[in-house]
């Protein structure tokens, strides 16, 4: 979901995504950077992402990932599910 959310703004390459995850989650979610790639390929196989080769800002060839229509839909659903979950947890926590 994180990856989808990040890609919802703009297409990005793998390194960019990993930087963004670290930045956004304020270094809380810290995994080996490489483990991102199997996830990306899995999402691509499920049709939520597509990839293309483009040039990065410093003019190097990089593989960019972009959200597909199905990806947007899935993101919407997951985000909704997540919000519900958070709301439920908050409800429980607040009730105590």
């Amino acid at each position: 979901m994180l990856v989808l959310q990040i890609l919802a703004h703009e297409p990005m390459h793998g390194w960019g995504i990993s930087e963004r995850i670290q930045g956004l989650s304020k270094d809380v979610l810290r995994v080996t950077q490489g483990s991102l790639y199997p996830a990306l390929h899995r999402l691509e196989k499920r049709g939520l992402l597509t990839s293309y080769w483009g040039s990065s800002r410093n003019n190097r060839k990089a593989k960019y990932y972009r959200l597909t229509g199905a990806g947007e839909k899935s993101l919407g659903q997951e985000a909704e599910g997540w919000e519900r979950f958070v709301a439920a947890v908050q409800g429980v926590m607040g009730g105590v």
């Binding site: 390459h13 990065s56 060839k61 593989k63």
Partner: peptide, 17 residues
């Protein structure tokens, strides 16, 4: 090849950072 290239790109970017 693509995988090699993708990983290499990542490593280079990280190194530069």
């Amino acid at each position: 090849q693509e995988m090699d290239q993708e990983f290499r790109f990542h490593l280079e970017m990280e190194r530069e950072k």
